[in-house]
Simulated scan of single mutants.
Amino acid sequence: MATAARTAKTRTNRARSNCEVDSLDALAAQAPAEAIELPLAALRRTIERDGWSFVGGRLLEFEGNHNDTLIYARLASR
């Protein structure tokens, strides 16, 4: 049992190390409100509806296709 708990903790720590922020509010602060409002609202609905927890995330600039921004969100089941 201790090994399984250690493995889960290691996975969570590794997931967090790939993320710049650990809350949706901090993620929202990284972009202009009008650009991030709708995508984050959809993400919040998905998290609440399906029982996920937000572990971390970041915004990645996506060059090329109309300068879209990619939202990277790490979620964990509750």
Rank of each mutant, 00 (worst) to 15 (best):
T3C: 05
R78M: 00
I71K: 01
R45S: 10
D68L: 12
T46M: 12
R58S: 03
C19A: 10
I36W: 14
E63S: 12
A31Q: 15
L40D: 14
E48D: 15
G64T: 13
L24E: 10
L24F: 13
E37C: 07
S23I: 07
D68G: 03
E37I: 03
L75G: 01
G57F: 04
V55R: 02
E61V: 03
E37P: 01
A15G: 06
D68Q: 10
G57Y: 04
L27N: 09
S77Y: 02
R16Y: 07
T7G: 01
S77E: 02
A41T: 14
R45E: 14
F54D: 07
E37L: 07
R14N: 09
V55T: 07
N13P: 01
E63T: 13
F62Q: 07
L59A: 02
T69E: 07
A29M: 06
P32S: 13
T69V: 15
R49N: 11
A28S: 14
L27P: 10
E20G: 12
A73R: 00
G51V: 06
V55Y: 08
H66W: 12
G51R: 02
A29T: 08
A4Q: 12
D50A: 06
P39W: 07
D68A: 13
R14P: 00
R14G: 02
L70Q: 02
H66C: 03
D25W: 07
M1I: 05
R45I: 03
A73V: 01
N18E: 13
T10L: 12
N67A: 10
L60A: 08
L70C: 01
S53R: 13
R14Y: 05
E61N: 02
G51K: 02
E34A: 11
A35P: 01
A29N: 12
A15I: 08
G57E: 07
R58W: 01
E63L: 11
I36F: 15
S17V: 03
N67Y: 10
F62C: 02
Q30N: 09
T46Q: 11
G57L: 06
